[in-house]
Write a protein that binds this DNA or RNA. Sequence first.
DNA 1: ATATTGACTTGACGTGCATCAAATGCCCGC
DNA 2: GCGGGCATTTGATGCACGTCAAGTCAATAT
Lengths: 263, 263
Amino acid sequence: MTRCEDGNGTTKCGDHEICADCVLYNLLGQHAEDAFARQLLARLTHSKSALKTGEVLKREEEPFKGLFMLTTGALKTYTISEDGNEQIISFHLPGELIGLSAMGRGYHVGCTVAISPSNLCAMPAQDLEKLCAREPKLQRRLFGLATQELSRRERLHQLMSGSRAEGRLAMALLNIACRLQSHDGSSLHRFRLPMARADLAAYLGLTPETTSRHLRSWESKGMIATRGREFEIRKPNELERMAGQEHVDGQDQDKNRFNLRVV
Amino acid sequence: MTRCEDGNGTTKCGDHEICADCVLYNLLGQHAEDAFARQLLARLTHSKSALKTGEVLKREEEPFKGLFMLTTGALKTYTISEDGNEQIISFHLPGELIGLSAMGRGYHVGCTVAISPSNLCAMPAQDLEKLCAREPKLQRRLFGLATQELSRRERLHQLMSGSRAEGRLAMALLNIACRLQSHDGSSLHRFRLPMARADLAAYLGLTPETTSRHLRSWESKGMIATRGREFEIRKPNELERMAGQEHVDGQDQDKNRFNLRVV
DNA sequence: ATATTGACTTGACGTGCATCAAATGCCCGC
DNA sequence: GCGGGCATTTGATGCACGTCAAGTCAATAT
């Protein structure tokens, strides 16, 4: 799988040239085998948009108009509960598709905003439909992505209902590390957390205070090292144990890495 | 929408006749417009199985072999955490599809067992694939179901991370009432809870004790009435408020009912 | 009926996390 | 470099919920 070379936060995709590193290309390119599909693909991959931190991608209850593929940056989708608290439903990291869950329902639940400067490829619903009708493989691929995400959500439910604060936090950290790494090939053990700790807390149903306390406790035990949002995981096994996953070493490493991608 | 007339827990579907009341028929029937599809449909709808309480439908990590449509009864899928606790990932009620989340991944996460005597229609993967290839509408319908379930899971996450015990419990009760009703047309306000309270607790990340205490507290306030697993919801508005959903009455009733189907 | 088993309830107690409040560090524009 | 605003840390306190332990009830078998 090719990757975006976007170390500095800006995409290298040219304006009028299909970006070979773009995950969107990975998704569609392999299924685009005739002129019609290529043409659609070109339209899809060229309708790019850039968001600054805090800019809104889509608002609560907005009708579904298409999917987005995030190439660089990070977003969150959240709702505001009646008591005014922000509840984070999901984080979106580079290489991930945004909007699948709105397709069946027809409109979006929650508001999606950029939490870092982000670049996205927009995939309008009509174009997607045409392309799917023409390329059953793409249809199946999208279906597969939907059921995989469903499966990750189930695993997330498991962790949310089964773990206490420490376990949830460990799970989230490992998961984010793993998702970042699987896209840009960075290290699993060193990464920059894309979101504020308060966001992480809101995602896990915790308070920023609890989050901070556990992180500092881990730091004092030498399990992690942090400087602002820069994280270094020093004892992944311990963290994995707390996240409720047994550590497997040696040849099962891959399986283990897969498990981390649970959410 | 037609319904199973299964008041006594046994399906009325004949052995060699397509059951017009079966939800499976609702799913596939409308898309089966040629002889080939009908033939497949007949095969699908006739491979039925019955499970007694406690019998296993599929085990942890079993490879995906097909979907099931539950016609009567109820099932749960769960995993055992390393400390020996049962964590319930989902409940399956009549009219619902079982196994979607295993399609992308290729194998099942969690073990699925019957919690009441149940009847299912099995839909083998190969048959499904053939039928999908022939009937794009069916393919799209399945995709729509997957993304809808995804959307419900997101909403569930929201409730799990945002509500305390009382809110989660209210949400679960209303949700189950709504799902039961939407299949068999029974009352939203009176129903028989298909699972033990301990199962409900395990699903919500609570203990049976907490669950019991809240239920009794509601009962003492006249919000609900219970006799064993028979439930009567006396003040739905109060419950909805606790579940974090504003009550809407009058013409918005339908929208409200829809909201209840969140999970 | 009586015994038996498992589901449910109830109480006493401890703890993990939320809450409130304040201090500290960090980033950004000037 | 300096100051303002936000993110993060830290502490003190209270409550919701988990834990442990009995007890009650309901369903089924004897």
